[in-house]
């Protein structure tokens, strides 16, 4: 979906404007191909499971999502976990964007110290595993700063994804023609105003697609914070699997939920791109 959005953004507006027409051009053929591929995947999964003698018990799954007792609706552990996952990713996303932008601007700044700080952070965050960073922040940094488990998870995720986001911002900023800077400077605008009014508004449109991919990574990577016992969705799933041995059912269910969230996100961004790209 995300790559589809990207391609559309590059098409001339006359073609992109016909997006809905073009998808409905050959609906029967498209649907047939889709069903064929899906049937193939389903067959492989079922076949693999049946060869291991796996006993599917999908009927036991709904209770982990929600329960309805006496008309009272209660969230099950998976959806309770989803709430934590969304909470973590929402805050991390904002922090990721902020850290990424700050780091990119530092790397492009005139300050040597700023550039070194940004570079060191970038290399450490990108070149060590997230799981190590999580442990480091939880066991070493968190006690010093007195922050709780949940915020340690958010901090680790934001710092990790922020490093990638900063490279995305940076590439977006340096991809703008030098003439934009020169025109702005020749009018007497300060560097701050040039970024605020000229460079960033244009760069944001260019980095929206890769930044969306990064956000999707963030949502998926949030499953890793289960290692420091934050009860987000994956942690809940692990607990249920350990108790019930419904391995495939539970993991497929949460995979479906992650997919659902990321699809909604990329569709939302595709919409944003269409609104933004008009005059680019």
């Amino acid at each position: 979906m995300n790559s589809g959005g990207t391609q559309n953004a590059r098409l001339p507006s006359s073609v992109a404007g016909n997006r809905f027409l073009s998808t409905s051009r050959m609906p029967i053929k498209d649907i047939a191909v889709y069903l064929f591929v899906m049937a193939g995947i389903a067959y492989i999964i079922l076949r693999g499971a049946s060869e291991q003698g796996y006993n599917w018990q999908w009927y036991r799954i709904p209770q982990f999502l929600y329960t309805l007792e006496d008309g009272a609706f209660t969230l099950g552990p998976l959806l309770e976990g989803l709430k934590i996952t969304l909470h973590i990713t929402w805050i991390s996303m904002i922090l990721t964007y902020a850290i990424g932008l700050a780091t990119a601007l530092l790397r492009l700044s005139d300050s040597i110290i700023g550039r070194i700080v940004a570079r060191v952070y970038l290399e450490v965050a990108r070149n060590t595993p997230l799981i190590v960073q999580l442990f480091f922040i939880y066991f070493v940094v968190a006690p010093v700063l007195g922050i709780d488990r949940l915020f340690a998870a958010i901090l680790a995720l934001s710092l990790f994804e922020g490093a990638y986001a900063s490279e995305i911002y940076r590439s977006g900023i340096v991809s703008l023609p030098k003439g934009q800077w020169e025109a702005s400077h020749s009018l007497g605008l300060t560097t701050f105003d040039t970024y605020r009014k000229i460079i960033l508004p244009q760069a944001i449109r260019r980095v929206l697609p890769p930044l969306t991919s990064q956000t999707i990574s963030l949502i998926k990577d949030s499953s890793l914070v289960s290692v420091i016992a934050v009860y987000e969705m994956t942690m809940q799933a692990n607990a249920i699997v350990a108790e019930t041995f419904l391995t495939f059912e539970v993991y497929f269910t949460i995979a479906g939920i992650y997919l659902f969230i990321t699809v909604i996100l990329s569709q939302f961004v595709a919409l944003l791109e269409r609104i933004f790209k008009v005059h680019q």
Partner: peptide
Amino acid sequence: RLKIRREMGMVFQLFNLFPH
């Protein structure tokens, strides 16, 4: 530098208008 730029207008070969 800012003061001087303020008093000097510049027109470029490739216009360099702000496209957004």
